[in-house]
Structures are given as structure tokens and as C-alpha cells.
Simulated scan of single mutants.
Amino acid sequence: MAEDWISVTLYPNGTMKNKLGIRDAAELADLEFQISAERELLLLKEKVKVGQIEDLKKIHKIMFSPLYEWAGHYRKGDFRKGNTVFFPRERFDYAEEDINEAISNLPKKGPLTAENYASLIDKINFFHPFREGNGRSTRTFLQLFALEHEQAIDYPLTNEAMIVAENEADIAKIALLLKVKALAE
């Protein structure tokens, strides 16, 4: 059952089970933010190469492995958040194929548009391969991808508008929220 795999990842109070045994959700969220942000900076500083969606697993593992046993592993079943139902687990190979095809159809060098990145955000968001940390992993993946195109992506300071646009799968809205900048030489 889909709900069984979700419940085994939670303590009875609803806090995500973690390697440190933290049972306070706010404390875990603060530590998760700190650790994932530090590791994201390390990935960006090292300019880790990404070229396929499978690289998202590597990024997720690096960002979340200090906290979660399942870091870098795809979720085991179907998943929803609120009214949003994400891609069915048994069809992940199709999602990977679709995203890899979208990546391969983009220019290998030179600038990409906000719409190019927005389309990838939309596809990866619907894929939603991990139990937690999908948004942060996706943003890091796309920042690394942008670096290969000598660009950086500025995301909105608050997530609310982006979450609404992603839930509506509105690529035009997502693109408007992104600021794509060329890197200075």
C-alpha cells in the first residue's frame, strides 16, 4: 500500500524519521535547512557536472544523507501533497526518459531561457522522486545545469508563488518568477 511506505518514514508525532533521532519537527526542519544549504554551496562551489536526471539522485544523497537513510533513493510508492498527485512510482522510467529527452533537446552550450528552465522545473516537480527534499534538490540540479551554460538562476525569495505555479503546472508563470543571469567572466 502506498500509505505504508509513507508511515514507516515518520515518527508517531509526524516528524520524519532521521539518523539523529530528532523528534521535534521544527528542530529537524532547522537542521535540515542548515545541512542542505551547506551541502548545496559545496556542490555549487565544486561545479558538479549534471547531464541527466539520474544526477538528481547524487545531489539528493549529498544534500540529505547526514539526516536520512533514504537520501538519494527514489520513493517507494505513490505520493501526494494536498491536492497534488505526483508521478506514479511504477512509471518512473518514463519520467526519467521524458526529462532526459527534454535535457538532450536543449543546446549543450550557450544561454538558455527562463522558459527552458521552467519547463524542466515543471517536469521534475511532477516527477517528485523523493520522500522529501525534492524542491531543494531540483533547484540545486538546475543551478548546476545553468552553470554549464554560464548562467545562474535567481529564484523568488519566497516560495509561495512558485509553489502555486508549480502546482498549476504553469510554465509561463514559473518562467516569470525566475531570473536567469549570465555569469560575468
Rank of each mutant, 00 (worst) to 15 (best):
F33C: 01
D98N: 10
D78C: 03
F64T: 03
L31Q: 05
R91W: 08
D30P: 00
G82C: 11
P88C: 04
E27H: 07
F33L: 09
T84P: 00
E54G: 13
M63S: 07
F33Y: 11
L56P: 00
K47S: 13
D98L: 15
R39P: 00
E69H: 08
I53A: 09
P66K: 05
P66S: 09
I62Y: 10
I59P: 08
R80P: 00
Y74Q: 09
E38K: 10
E69D: 15
E54K: 11
Y94C: 00
I35V: 15
E54S: 15
L41N: 12
H60C: 02
G72C: 10
I99Y: 09
N83L: 14
E27W: 01
A95W: 06
V85N: 09
L28D: 02
H60S: 01
R39D: 01
K47N: 11
K61N: 11
A71Q: 09
L43H: 01
Q34M: 12
L28Y: 02
E96S: 01
A37S: 15
V85D: 06
A95G: 03
E69N: 12
Y94N: 01
K45E: 11
I99H: 04
F87L: 05
S36T: 13
Y94P: 00
D78F: 02
R39Y: 05
A37L: 09
E54M: 08
G51S: 14
R80V: 02
E97M: 14
E69T: 12
P88Q: 12
K76A: 07
N100M: 05
F87Q: 01
F86E: 02
F86L: 06
G72D: 04
K61W: 03
G77A: 15
K76N: 10
F79L: 15
R39Q: 10
K58M: 12
D30R: 13
Y68V: 07
L67D: 02
L43A: 13
I59M: 11
D93K: 12
V48C: 02
E40I: 03
A37M: 08
I59T: 10
P66T: 10
T84Y: 08
E54Y: 11
R89N: 03
L44P: 06
E54C: 06
K57R: 15
Q52H: 09
E40C: 04
A71R: 07
A37E: 13
F33N: 09
A37T: 13
D78M: 06
K57D: 07
K81M: 11
S65G: 04
D93M: 08
A29P: 00
K45R: 14
Q34T: 13
G77R: 06
V48L: 15
T84L: 01
E46P: 00
F87V: 01
R75V: 04
K61S: 09
Q34A: 13
V85K: 13
A95Y: 03
I53V: 15
L28A: 04
E32Q: 11
N100F: 06
Y94F: 14
E69G: 07
F64K: 05
A37H: 10
L31W: 04
F79Y: 14
Y68I: 05
L56F: 08
K81I: 15
